[in-house]
């Protein structure tokens, strides 16, 4: 069975890597689009994001990508994967750019890592949190299939997510604070790291996403 994927495009940054990684792990047609009809026809929806939150939010709203996302989640009931700023945009509010209201689809906020940031031994940590860090799997999920706990994924962000409902936490990462690395709710899986840039671990997660029926 060939699984088609729509990657929601709101004009912020390079989405080719997501698309080519999905194709690499066996996706059928992958479209990068904000066309409601094309998204409605897709078997899977990816909500990516890079860049600053204010610009992302204004483009998401201008192109009505929030409605497309809501449609995918609650009407189409297809599996949805949010990545990086895509995850952050789902929350209530972000501290970035002097405070920006986000979509409020998941209760919780997006916080600055802090400056200076130190680890448990008082050693200084650089911000952005950039590089390969270990993700602690907080619960079983079909998207973790075949990925050992504490596998390293590639992160690049200065703000981190903290969901109010801790039962949504699917993975966490330690970097001075304990940050939410993955949230899961029904047919939505949202990650702070970049699976498309996380070598074989990331490709496994994307393959799991294609194989996932949206139940957990």
């Amino acid at each position: 069975m060939s699984v088609s994927v729509a990657v929601i495009d709101y004009g912020m940054g390079n989405l080719h890597s997501v698309a080519s990684a999905l194709q690499h792990v066996g996706a059928g047609e992958v479209v990068v689009t904000h066309d409601a009809e094309l998204i409605r026809q897709a078997d899977r929806v990816v909500f990516p994001g890079v860049g600053a939150i204010r610009d992302c939010m204004s483009e998401i709203r201008r192109l009505k990508c929030d409605e497309l996302l809501a449609q995918a989640l609650t009407e189409q009931h297809v599996p949805v994967l949010a990545i990086c700023v895509g995850l952050q945009a789902l929350m209530d509010r972000s501290e970035e750019n002097d405070g920006v209201d986000c979509l409020g689809m998941i209760p919780g906020d997006v916080r600055f890592f802090g400056n200076p940031l130190t680890d448990a031994n008082g050693q200084r940590l650089k911000v952005p949190h950039m590089g390969w860090n270990e993700v602690r799997q907080q619960r079983d999920h079909p998207l973790w299939a075949g990925i050992p706990d504490m596998t390293r994924f590639y992160f690049v962000h200065s703000y981190y997510v903290h969901a109010k409902d801790r039962s949504l936490l699917a993975g966490s990462v330690e970097y001075g604070v304990s940050a939410d690395a993955a949230l899961a709710r029904d047919n939505l899986f949202a990650v702070q790291f970049h699976p498309e840039k996380s070598a074989s671990a990331g490709l496994t997660l994307l393959k799991n996403f294609l194989n996932w029926n949206g139940q957990c």
């Binding site: 680890d119 050693q123 940590l125 590089g131 390969w132 860090n133 270990e134 390293r152 001075g176």
Partner: peptide, 11 residues
């Protein structure tokens, strides 16, 4: 020994 809370040094 460097403590980095898990973040790997990159090559």
């Amino acid at each position: 020994r460097l403590s980095t809370m898990g973040l790997a040094k990159r090559i």
